[in-house]
Simulated scan of single mutants.
Amino acid sequence: MLIHTVLDMAQAVPVPNPEPIAPPGLEKPINTILGWGKWGVIVSGVAGLLICGAQMAIGRKNRSSFAADGASGIPWVLGGLSLAATASGIVGMFLG
C-alpha cells in the first residue's frame, strides 16, 4: 500500500525536460567537428560503393567469388550510410 502511494506521488511530480543548449563558446567548434564527420561518412560511402562496383566489374569474367564479394558489400555500405543519415533522429529519440 505504501509503495503504491509513493509511486503515485512520484508520477504526479513533473520531470523537467530542458532543451539541449550548447555550452557557451562550444557551438561553433562542435558544429565544425560534426561537419567533418559528415563529410568523412560521405567520402567513405562513395568510396565504398565505387570499390563494390569495381569488384563486381573485375569479377565478371572467371572470378565470380570476387564479384559476389563486391555485391555482398553493397548492403553494408548502404546500411552504414543509412545509420549515419538517421543518427541525429535516433539519438533524439532516446534523449527526447
Rank of each mutant, 00 (worst) to 15 (best):
W36H: 10
I58Q: 05
G96W: 04
T86P: 00
P75Q: 12
T86F: 09
V13K: 04
D69E: 13
A12V: 11
N62F: 04
A71W: 14
A85W: 14
G89Q: 13
G48S: 06
A12Q: 15
A57N: 06
A71M: 12
I58V: 15
A47R: 10
I21K: 09
L7K: 13
K28L: 08
R63P: 02
K28H: 04
N62T: 05
A85T: 11
L95F: 15
V15I: 12
G25Q: 10
G89H: 13
V41K: 06
V6S: 15
A54G: 15
A47F: 09
G89D: 15
T32Q: 10
P16M: 08
G73W: 00
A54W: 14
V43W: 06
W76H: 12
R63M: 13
A87F: 12
L34G: 05
I58N: 04
A68D: 10
C52H: 02
G25I: 04
G70R: 03
L2Q: 07
G35A: 09
A12K: 15
V13T: 14
V91N: 03
V13D: 08
M93T: 14
S65G: 01
K38F: 09
P18C: 08
P75E: 13
A22R: 02
V6N: 15
Q11F: 11
G96V: 10
V46M: 07
G40N: 10
S82Q: 02
G35I: 04
N31K: 13
V13C: 11
A12R: 15
L78A: 04
T32C: 05
L49S: 00
L78M: 12
A10S: 08
V43P: 00
K28I: 07
V6P: 05
L78I: 10
A54P: 13
R63W: 14
N62K: 08
I51V: 13
